[in-house]
Amino acid sequence: MIRAALTDLLLVGPAALAVVLFIFLPVGVVFGLAFTDYQVGAAQAEWVGGANFAQLFGSRLGRNALLNTLTYAAIVIPGSVGLGLLVALGLHGMATRLPRLSALLRAVYFLPVAATLVAMAVSWQMLLHPSLGLANTWLQALNLPGQQWLSDRGLVLYTLAGIGIWQSTGYNMVLFLAGLAAIPSTLYDAAAVDGADRGWTRFWSVTWPMLGPTTLFVMIVTAASAFRVFETVATMTAGGPAFASDTIVYALYREGFVYFKAGYAAAITVVFFLALLALTALQMLLVERRVHYR
């Protein structure tokens, strides 16, 4: 008995220790720091209670970052889930008639997912350049006014959201394609016999409900990545102009790594961590409850 217990401990011990050392302990430290005014490099820190949290939710900048993130997510989630679904439906339908083209398009749509975002950001900057970029050249060819895609305060967040959609549609498409392939064809036959043999009726009575679990999963994954938006902001706008594209994770970076305000950055991390935790919990709850059809 004791020997077996020792063996178990020996097997589990190192990994558990690593988890505690490299995950739980740092997370604990972050939670602790969140209640201090610690600055990177400072010798000491003061306990400030909830002041950092009050600043995040109370200050203009903090609320701006939260609101920007929510706006961004509110565009990117439906946008990339919807577009991913549409593309998947198109490619799924095309796969039987034009298999080669379908496979080619699938790869094309997936490219943004596989590409390095920072490299892509450079391309986007060139495309969206106000006087030299293709985007404005096309607009002008259509006699429409060019736009300051990345430096107009009213537009920049939507531009980034557009890029966010472009970036995640391919991934969602692949998930939806897998979901579509898993729908038994007899259900479509059943629906056809029941009177739903084409178009929307068929989509609403079979495809959409059968994609329920996939859709929920895709939504949660997209939401998690939308709330985490950082690379595009950091590489293309640095949160600007005038904080118009400041998001929660960029603010975290800005406060901690540019302003050296580790305590405040830790508070943002804590809020962000809890929000993602809640999202995950929601997912598990919903998956258990609703969409497993049990």
Partner: peptide, 17 residues
């Protein structure tokens, strides 16, 4: 003067616009 970003301007000047 337009509100283009620093990156944009640093491309625009050498491009001659």
């Amino acid at each position: 003067m337009s509100s283009m970003s620093e990156n944009d301007a640093r491309q625009a000047f050498p491009a001659g616009t």
